[in-house]
Amino acid sequence: MSQTRETLITMANQIATFFQSQGAPDLAARDTAQHIKDFWAPRMRRDLLDMIAAGEAQRLSPIASDAMHRLK
């Protein structure tokens, strides 16, 4: 797996960590998904979804993972 795609996992996890800290667990995945939708180019979203589908995104945090499912 390439380093640049690994970066996407790191980025998604960082975003999820922030929204998780906002204190409302039910909203964290929603807000993470919205942030990714607002700021990531479609190609990046697609790449990360591809990685999830291929089982290459084990490092993704549960909230980030939940968020990505919402962006399918």
């Binding site: 390439s2 380093q3 640049t4 795609r5 970066t7 607002d38 700021f39 990531w40 180019a41 479609p42 190609r43 990046m44 790449d47």
Partner: peptide
């Protein structure tokens, strides 16, 4: 309607060949 790539993302995408 979708956001584009940011500088680091452009460089990543370049390395990916896209």
């Amino acid at each position: 309607a979708d956001p584009g790539l940011r500088i680091p993302n452009m460089l990543d995408a370049a390395i990916e060949g896209e």
